[in-house]
Amino acid sequence: MVMKISDNEKLLSVQDLKVYFRSEDEVARAVDGVSFDVRREETVCLVGESGCGKTVTALSIMGLVPIPPGEIADGRVLFRDQNLLDFNDTEMQQFRGNQIAMVFQEPQTSLNPVFTIGDQIGEAISTHEDIPESEITRRSEQLLKDVGIASPAERLGDYPHQLSGGQRQRAMIAMALACSPDLIIADEPTTALDVTVQAQILRLLDSIQKLRSMSVLYITHDLGVVSKIADRVCVMYAGIIAEQGNRQEIFKNPKHPYTQALLASLPNREKRGQRLYSIPGTVPNPAYKPSGCPFHPRCQHAIQTCAERYPGMCDYGDGHHARCPVLFDGGKDTWCK
């Protein structure tokens, strides 16, 4: 019997991660001090608008940030207390797929068009395990079956273009599962799909996660999806985590002006006839981020200090944190720098 403590064990802990991209005349601070944990069997959603640093965060965990122009400027990525940022390429390659696997947004670009689905799943298995061909085939077939693909034996011989968008995404998930990882990072895996197919994929991930006791780091810009699947939510804005907490808290009791504004700007039927709240301005370019709180030019609660000092994380208890001292009782003392 596994001990109870392990249920809450931190599987992944990202601490003060900073990833910059340098070009001749500027530095894009794509990820600028991000910290969050993923515990065992937990689904954590990283949500934010495009360009806020979600994918770069995921790539850093996987050791896939192109260096240069990228640079890990600071921080640690602890997986079971090992700092992945200390791993060399060979160590990281062994680690990828085996313990953490990633599902990308565009299955078209991450599946190789000239190899069959069977080849690619087989490859994912044989990279990490030395087992006979027949066993690889058997396992590949089982994986396709697990992700709900009909007549898996025949599908193994198909090329990616022969599958529909939803089937390709299933095949990607099958590949990610090939070595029974403990953590799956899924970067917008349903963004390109129809709602009905999206619902299928979300359910699939959910059931596999329960069955295999995995953790999932799910990256999306869609708050609707987050509201369905997350245990905990990290709301990103301009390279930082503006707010994090469990799903209920984030949706029912948001504490950061950006989270509040995002929720208010979502259209739905109940708001018909009302004007949508719309956040003025646009997401900043990471090379030219506003001083102080990066949200201050768009924030309706901003005060003078917001443009001058960096806001600290304010603790609302029970793992709920928001980086906005202005809305926090006694927030005066939490400003940094």
């Binding site: 709602v195 999206q198 619902a199 959910d206 869609d222 609707g224 509201s227 699947i229 929720l263 739905n268």
Partner: peptide
Amino acid sequence: AIPDSERSDISDMN
């Protein structure tokens, strides 16, 4: 299949 924040759980999605 609408992912909205009103219905609460993934198992409600068809």
